[in-house]
Design a binder for these strands. Sequence first.
DNA 1: ACCAATTTAGGACACTTGACAAGGTTTGTC
DNA 2: GACAAACCTTGTCAAGTGTCCTAAATTGGT
Lengths: 226, 226
Amino acid sequence: MPFSNLESRRFKSIAIADLAFPAREGGYSKGHETREQILSSALHLLVEEGYSALSMRKVAATCGLKIGNLTYHFATREELIRALLDALISAYEVEFDAILQFTDEAPEERLAEVCGLILEDIRTKKTTHVFPELWALSNHDPFVLERVQELYTRARRSLLEIIRELRPDLSPQCHEDLALFISASMEGLTVFAGYRKPFEGRMDQLERMAIQSFLRIVQIYQPASS
Amino acid sequence: MPFSNLESRRFKSIAIADLAFPAREGGYSKGHETREQILSSALHLLVEEGYSALSMRKVAATCGLKIGNLTYHFATREELIRALLDALISAYEVEFDAILQFTDEAPEERLAEVCGLILEDIRTKKTTHVFPELWALSNHDPFVLERVQELYTRARRSLLEIIRELRPDLSPQCHEDLALFISASMEGLTVFAGYRKPFEGRMDQLERMAIQSFLRIVQIYQPASS
DNA sequence: ACCAATTTAGGACACTTGACAAGGTTTGTC
DNA sequence: GACAAACCTTGTCAAGTGTCCTAAATTGGT
């Protein structure tokens, strides 16, 4: 029963910062403050009411600003939203890069750990609410598509390393495919067992099942013979 | 190599109707025609430009109607969208119910078949574009959440039957969890290997991998000992 | 052929949206 | 304390939104 020691995780949880702001250059500190306040309010609005609620006026109202002031900091809605997505996605990337540091345990343990962390994040309101919006947007906005896929590329990196270790006999392409499949499987659970979803309560069992399943497929997978 | 006979599928593809319209009752036939035309145009708009493009005026323009006429058939935008989602989701449900008829082969084969059909559907533009919108909407609209989850309940039915057959020793709850996990895994691939997604070209390998993985986890899964 | 039920046309209303411009206020620096 | 850059307020604009209303045209059954 190699999967039962979830409680012994070295990293009990990840606390992904809401947003990662780029280092400031120029301008007064007050300006940067309000800029961050704007993006925070925008994120809050996105999480609570969805993408369609992200109007300039609502954002301005949420953080107690006049519209004119908002357009001073972000001239267009487009600009604001791009800045928001950048800060949002960067925050996840920072965290995923940190996960890459886990190198001292057996690969089986690390797989369980990484998957556990991701599945834990999926249950948060922020992730459950934001990512479906991003997925939907990416269908019509190449910028979003590219940014989101770049995020997932980073998310797969830690999986890739583990898979390589477990199956050095497979081709890099196979490693990629396995990491992709595992990552996609977990993302899919968002819709069913994410925050306030019907099967939120079954996430513990699903996590056990998922990790068990992922470990198995990595161990036994054989690419098509042809 | 029990998974290699994808080409021997009995049902080479499913052609999910775009929309399933309820039987008409009362009214002239012309009225029903335009009603269906409206919903078809709305679906087209939803797929091509996303949910935010679903304005009354755009829908009216797309099917060459005046706004006044559109509001005659659907008094409010809300009403139109609900009718659209109903027709849309019904179309999938009709198809999923049809899959339940596959009962003459071995459960292993049927699992591969059902998963193959679902993964095939995921690659269509319609499904790739519509479902992320639905997932996003379901976060803020209980009506959509309920309708979507009802759809997935039906989608899992065929999986449930197969899993029951393969593992009669497990509890119904375990059967549910397995079906849920498998279904969620496949849905997750939408974002990565759906229509015009970066890994669309790897869907064949992913499908093999998925089916292989799903069969294994069903065969070996053991619930937590406690 | 008629007529009532149904469908279409066209426009009007009140409101929100993103964007802009011109002026006023704060902030840091010399 | 002057001065310029940064920041904020206020008001306005055209375009787009959902909803409603009235009158004309079409339809299907008699």
